[in-house]
Design a protein around this nucleic acid. Sequence first.
DNA 1: TTAATATTTTAGACTAATCTAAAAATTTGT
DNA 2: ACAAATTTTTAGATTAGTCTAAAATATTAA
Lengths: 224, 224
Amino acid sequence: MEISVTEENYIKAIFKLEEFSNNDAISTNDIAIKLSMQPATVTDMIKRLAEKKIVTYKKYYGVLLTPKGKKIALTIIRKHRLWEVFLVKKLNFKWDEVHEIAEQLEHINSPELVEKLDDFLGNPKFDPHGDAIPDKDGKMRVVNSFPLSTIIKKGHYVFCGVANHETKFLQYLTNLRLNLGDSIEIESINEYDSSYKIKIDNKHCEFLSEQVASSILVSRVNEK
Amino acid sequence: MEISVTEENYIKAIFKLEEFSNNDAISTNDIAIKLSMQPATVTDMIKRLAEKKIVTYKKYYGVLLTPKGKKIALTIIRKHRLWEVFLVKKLNFKWDEVHEIAEQLEHINSPELVEKLDDFLGNPKFDPHGDAIPDKDGKMRVVNSFPLSTIIKKGHYVFCGVANHETKFLQYLTNLRLNLGDSIEIESINEYDSSYKIKIDNKHCEFLSEQVASSILVSRVNEK
DNA sequence: TTAATATTTTAGACTAATCTAAAAATTTGT
DNA sequence: ACAAATTTTTAGATTAGTCTAAAATATTAA
């Protein structure tokens, strides 16, 4: 069955919304906002996706991906993240430069290409932002990570992902010399504004606002 | 100015037809045949390309690319051929497997990606089929090659390209153990059916029909 | 609980890219 | 040179994907 690039983008959007929805249906409006589109447009497309058994749809209620829809979403995400690894590891792009390009590359349709790319890259399990890469069957590593902002006592952690993929934010972390995999030691927590003083990689100290800390995902040492 | 994938395909088709047309205008029909489309459809698209100053168009006469149109064509061809090198050299695809995938990849729009890919591949001058890769400014190597079928006396040549990119034909050459860059010694020419007996790489002998010989491009030793 | 507000769907319209059928222009062959 | 054949264009229709405006439904709050 043919799936257009447009349809793929809807599927991906629905998948991402489902991740934060505790299994309840996704509203037309939320999809419209995510894709910068009019709700009326979304209603139309959803009907088509429902015809194709990619989503289940109940009028005035919302949509959910079927298992088939989820599988499609995971292969798109797999491609996106593999291409990001390629761009950063092989072509020397910075981690804040790859998203737009990967948004194009993820729609290239060739299962052999994906598998050969995966092998060429050494079957990576995480992309340059720390997001897990689904395997051929859609399985991916589960990392027990949480926002740095949820930590209330000092200690040692590992920087293993971001909850915000905006260019500006990624560049800010780069300027802090904070890289994926670095150790983060929390030296103190400011009770007034919930900001943190941290030591990165046992080397240099930095201050993080609550806002920034909420987008930094960490895991306990030895995880991931 | 935005150029759609569809428009890019028309531009590429016109460019390829111009290569064999001695500067005279390309007919609607020829484009229609090349793209497996109806002439009426082509007429419409040509009008749009003319509006955008990508082609010059005279009704009932034909079209020619403008310099701007040629430049666009060359960047698409550059991308196509660079991706083919990537697929063969880095991902271990065979030379007969890459065309379809490169047809998709050539439409990825990111000048930085193209330049980084070019560097990553070591700035190759030829693709896996021996076709020259245009540089950033559209310039490419000119190789003095000719079909093996035009040769009328024995001697030594180098296999440097193909005039037929069909999968079947490429596989046939692979089975002959004839690879780009191999030396070809013409041992005898059959006057009756214009077939050739050749020695490949000073190693093994093969017979080539006139038909096959016409799709094998060679150069004199020391060229390219 | 019902009126106001918000969300969602329907209806109708538009553009890009395609088609078929018919009309117009060009080319060919005697 | 002109009738026949071929090519090209025009006209009108279709589909995917989008929009706006209006109608239908659901939610919220007094």
